[in-house]
Design a protein around this nucleic acid. Structure first.
Length: 270
DNA sequence: CAGGTCTCCTGCTAGC
DNA sequence: TGCTAGCAGGAGACCT
């Protein structure tokens, strides 16, 4: 499941292939994937646009074109494949972008991914990007900021860390890793966290995500960032998917918190 | 405003 | 062996 490091990896892989390439045609096999505008307009507006840059904001991929930004959220299983024209189109390849010498195919088994095509001006102040909180490395992400955001949050910190309007990029896997490194029990109410705990969360978010980016993300089950690209961070996971605490060797708790499977050590995380 | 629940999807798995 | 019910999960919609 793509979280920030996986999207960062996809971005880098796609930049190598797609910069300065002109979109010649687009095929949409699953219209619900396109938000806000009709498939007809989506295709019409994309034709002849050149990919000037590819950026990332939170878990969103941003394809910068001449006149638009194409936003793509991979959600659970979205992947981009570079294919030849005559490669077989499988049932999970929902959007196909045709370039001069190859095709870019958006593949998504569960069809949860979404795309927006937005006029270029002011995209960071337009939904969906306007709803996002700080990047983990933003200097504005500090204890005072988290305190103000968490003040009225009675939900478990496990749940609140997933809230993209506060900090972007954390998904269910890295959430568990961050809380383990911070020695914080996932059930602890966000509003009850001390300054030291908030500081730990800020630091460990950066530590975990930076390391995952260096290793090309995490490959669990079906998720690969791009065809043939496998992350290696899964080898570094401390608690998520694990059975035993790497520090005290107690058996890890595996429980559902607000519907999300959560791995933690009840002994080390207070 | 905060929080709970439902929804979207399909592949996989536990259980019979 | 073959079937099905149930589960996984990011984020938005909708309700309280």
């Amino acid at each position: 499941m793509p979280e920030l490091p996986e999207v960062e990896t996809v971005k880098e892989v796609l930049k190598k292939e797609l910069l300065n390439q002109k979109i010649l045609d687009v095929i949409v096999n699953y219209p619900k994937m396109i938000e806000q505008i009709s498939v007809e307009d989506f295709i019409k507006n994309l034709k002849n646009q050149v990919i000037i840059d590819i950026k990332r904001r939170g878990k969103w991929l941003l394809f910068e074109l001449n006149d638009y930004f194409l936003l793509s959220h991979l959600r659970m299983e979205g992947k981009y494949y570079i294919k030849n024209f005559d490669d077989e189109v499988t049932r999970h390849q929902h959007v196909i972008f045709k370039f001069k010498d190859f095709e870019l195919r958006y593949n998504d088994t569960r069809k949860f991914g979404r795309m927006y095509l937005l006029k270029k001006n002011n995209i960071y102040n337009t939904k969906p990007l306007s709803e996002l909180g700080y990047e983990p490395w933003d200097v504005n992400l500090n204890i005072e900021y988290l305190k103000s955001k968490y003040k009225n949050k009675k939900n478990p910190i496990k749940t609140v860390l997933l809230d993209q309007s506060i900090i972007v990029g954390i998904g269910n896997i890295y959430d568990d890793e961050i809380l383990f490194l911070s020695k914080i029990n996932p059930y602890k109410k966000a509003s009850d966290l001390t300054d030291i705990e908030l500081s730990s969360i800020i630091n460990n978010t950066k530590v975990v995500l930076e390391k995952a980016i260096k290793l090309g993300g995490t490959t669990i089950k079906s998720y690969t960032s791009s065809e043939g690209v496998h992350g290696r961070f899964q080898n570094e996971l401390l608690v998520h998917t694990k059975k035993e605490c790497p520090i005290c060797h107690n058996k890890l708790n595996i429980e559902k918190i607000n519907g999300r499977s959560t791995y933690y050590c009840a002994n080390c995380q207070k």
